[in-house]
Design a protein around this nucleic acid. Structure first.
Lengths: 153, 153
DNA sequence: GAGAAATATATGATGTGTCAACTAGTGGGT
DNA sequence: ACCCACTAGTTGACACATCATATATTTCTC
C-alpha cells in the first residue's frame, strides 16, 4: 500500500494497447458473427463445445467446466439458446438432477455456416498481422500470466 | 467462403491462451477492485479520465471519445455512477444540449484509494511475469492488430 | 435405512452493454 | 426570420453476467 510500484511509461503503453486491442477486437468479432449468423460470441463458444462431442450433447456441468463459465451464467444462457432453437434439454437417466444439452439440427447448421467466416475474421485481424515469433510470444505471455493466476487463486 | 484457411494447431493454442488469459484476468481484476473499493473496472476507467483533467470534469462526448465507448453505454453508466455519488452533472452554459460530468469529493477519494491496489494487481499478475522483450511484444502485437482494425473499419 | 451433507442445476434480483428510437438545442443557407 | 440538417445526450427494450438463494436428487454416515 505504501510502496506501490507504478507502471513505467512503456508498460503503460503496452497495457493500454492490449486493453484497447481486446475491446475493439471483440466488438468486431461480435458484430461479424451476429451479422453473418445471428450468433453471439458466447453462443459460438457453447456450440463449439457441443460439436466437439461425437454425440453432440454434454452435461451442463461438463460444459461449465470446459468453458470455464459460472454455472448460473451457463444456465441462463442455455435457456436463451433453447428459446432460439439452438439447443435442447434431455433428461438424464443416470442422474435425475442433471440434464443433457443437445445440439439441434438448427444449431448444428448454424455453427457450421458461421465457423468459416469467424475464422476468416480472426485470421484477417490477428494472425495475418503477426510474425511467427509474435504468435509464439502470444502463447508464452498467455501461459505465464495464466500460471500466475492459477498460482494465486 | 470456399477457401477458409483454418488456424494451425499452434495458432489455436496461442488464441486460446490469449482468450483464456483475458477472461480470467478481467475476472480477477474486477473482483479485486470491487472488494477493495466497490468500483467496477468501468467505473475505474471513467474516474481515471476525470482525474486526468485539471478541473476534474469533462463533457460527456469527450469522455465517450477518449474511452472509446458508445454514447448510450456511457450515458447509462454515468447515471448509475451519479446515483452512487461518484460523479455529478453540471449544466453547460455554452451548449445547452450538453452537460459536464464532474468528479465528486467521494469519487476522488474512492479512486485515489483504489488506484494503488489495482496497479499492484496488474503488476503482480502481468508485468512481474513478463520479460522486457515480452512487454515489447505485447505492445507491438497490440499496435499491429489495432492498425488492421482501423484500416478495415 | 433415516437423516445429514454434498451435488447438479435453476431462479430472481440487480448491474451492465447494445441497438434503435427519441428529445432538445445548434447553426447554416436561403 | 425560418426551415432543415446536424449534433449532444437520453431513454427503453432487450441480451448478458454475477451473486445469493432455492430445489431436487444423490451419497455418506450412523
Amino acid at each position: 500500500m505504501t510502496d506501490t510500484r507504478w507502471l513505467t511509461d512503456h508498460e503503460q503503453r503496452a497495457w493500454r494497447a492490449y486493453l484497447d486491442m481486446h475491446a475493439r477486437l471483440t466488438v468486431r468479432m461480435h458484430r461479424q458473427l451476429q451479422a453473418d449468423s445471428g450468433l453471439s460470441l458466447s453462443d459460438f463458444d457453447v456450440l463449439v463445445q457441443l460439436t466437439d462431442r461425437p454425440d453432440g450433447r454434454a452435461r451442463v456441468g461438463e460444459l461449465a467446466e470446459t468453458l470455464q463459465w459460472e454455472k448460473s451464467r451457463l444456465s441462463h444462457h442455455l435457456g436463451r439458446m433453447q428459446r432460439r432453437g439452438l439447443v435442447e434439454r434431455q433428461e438424464c437417466s443416470e442422474d435425475a438432477r442433471g440434464a443433457f444439452i443437445v445440439l439441434t439440427e438448427h444449431g448444428r447448421g448454424t455453427i457450421e455456416q458461421a465457423a468459416p467466416q469467424h475464422v476468416n475474421t480472426v485470421r484477417d485481424l490477428v494472425f495475418d498481422q503477426l510474425t511467427p515469433e509474435q504468435v509464439d510470444a502470444m502463447l508464452e505471455i498467455g501461459e505465464q500470466v495464466l500460471a500466475r493466476i492459477d498460482a494465486t487463486s
